[in-house]
């Protein structure tokens, strides 16, 4: 079918297709050399039992069968991770956009604020996790102290099975300045004359947001949705450093399970199977979102 279309295509369309493939060459090289091989190896390893120390032993689909029929930890990790995605994703999307709108105001001194909000996205690793442990310390932490003065008894945060997951979500929201930058770049692509025209028509700020900003920002929103979703599925460091998956496995994230299997239990076959299943889950979700995008994403050029 493709060949038939190719034959009937105009010389221009053919040239464009050739140019299209040429443009993908850098990515193709990287993909073939540094992605296909590792993925192939992972698929093979996922069908074996392998400690990394002795030769792998072929066991067919046993790892996958066990995962779906006889592994409560797999389901727990999946449940916790999906819960985290559902909790943090909408918050991050909305707050990131709100922050970006604020930062897009053309008023003096904005450079300073933009930098301040970006700082949290810059610090990474253990230092951040430790800092949050201090801030959310139930008795003496800053957050609960402030709540105390407001007449509220603060929760136990990371150390309460019900609050541990929201606490991790809170940490990721603090870093929202990073995604605000991407919204900010997206906002630059909305032509100013549209706003001027709307203002002349008497549209208020709220109406302008709903009728101009939001529709024209949907390509960026779509990008953020997919990226933040992938990111949320891969949440790991916070649980690894602070909660170790507890209490009562309330923060037992999927990648934490994967890490324990790969680097602590030396169960590389099973870990590979876990990683591949997660990839498929994210991929299916992305394809679904991509499918719905035709209904709500608006491209100026199409």
């Amino acid at each position: 079918m493709v060949i038939a279309r190719w034959r009937t295509a105009s010389p221009n369309a053919r040239r464009e297709a050739v140019e299209g493939y040429v443009s993908l060459i850098p990515w193709m090289i990287g993909f073939l050399a540094f992605t296909i091989i590792p993925i192939g190896v992972s698929i093979y390893v996922s069908l074996t039992q392998w400690t990394g120390m002795e030769p792998p032993r072929w066991i067919g689909f046993n790892n996958y069968v066990r995962m779906f029929t006889n592994d409560p930890l797999f389901w727990q990790a999946l449940k916790v991770t999906l819960g985290f995605v559902a909790l943090s994703l909408p918050l991050k999307l909305v707050l990131g956009l709100g922050l970006a709108l604020l930062l897009n105001l053309k008023i003096p001194g904005m450079n300073f604020f933009r930098t301040v909000f970006y700082i949290p996205a810059v610090i990474s690793g253990v230092a951040v996790s430790l800092m949050w442990m201090w801030l959310l310390q139930p008795d003496t932490g800053v957050v609960n102290t402030m709540l105390y003065f407001a007449g509220i008894e603060g929760p136990q945060w990371f150390w309460d099975p019900d609050w541990a997951l929201p606490s991790v979500a809170l940490m990721s929201i603090w870093k929202v300045g990073g995604s605000a930058i991407i919204y900010l770049a997206g906002l630059q692509n909305i032509p100013a004359h549209l706003y001027e025209a709307a203002e002349i028509d008497g549209a208020g700020a709220w109406a302008r947001f709903w009728r101009i900003t939001l529709p024209l920002l949907t390509p960026t929103l779509f990008f953020q949705l997919i990226i933040e979703m992938i990111d949320s599925f891969k949440v790991f460091t916070e649980a690894f450093v602070i909660t170790h998956g507890g209490p009562l496995k309330a923060t037992y994230f999927y990648l934490l399970y994967f890490y324990e299997e790969a680097f602590q239990n030396f169960n590389l076959g099973y870990a590979s199977a876990l990683a591949l299943v997660l990839t498929v889950i994210i991929l299916l979700t992305t394809i679904f979102v991509n499918y719905t995008s035709k209904r709500w994403v608006y491209y100026e050029s199409e």
Binding site: M133, D139, F158, P247
Partner: peptide, 8 residues
């Protein structure tokens, strides 16, 4: 110390 204290 509570678990929170110990970790923090």
């Amino acid at each position: 110390p509570t678990p929170a204290d110990l970790e923090v």
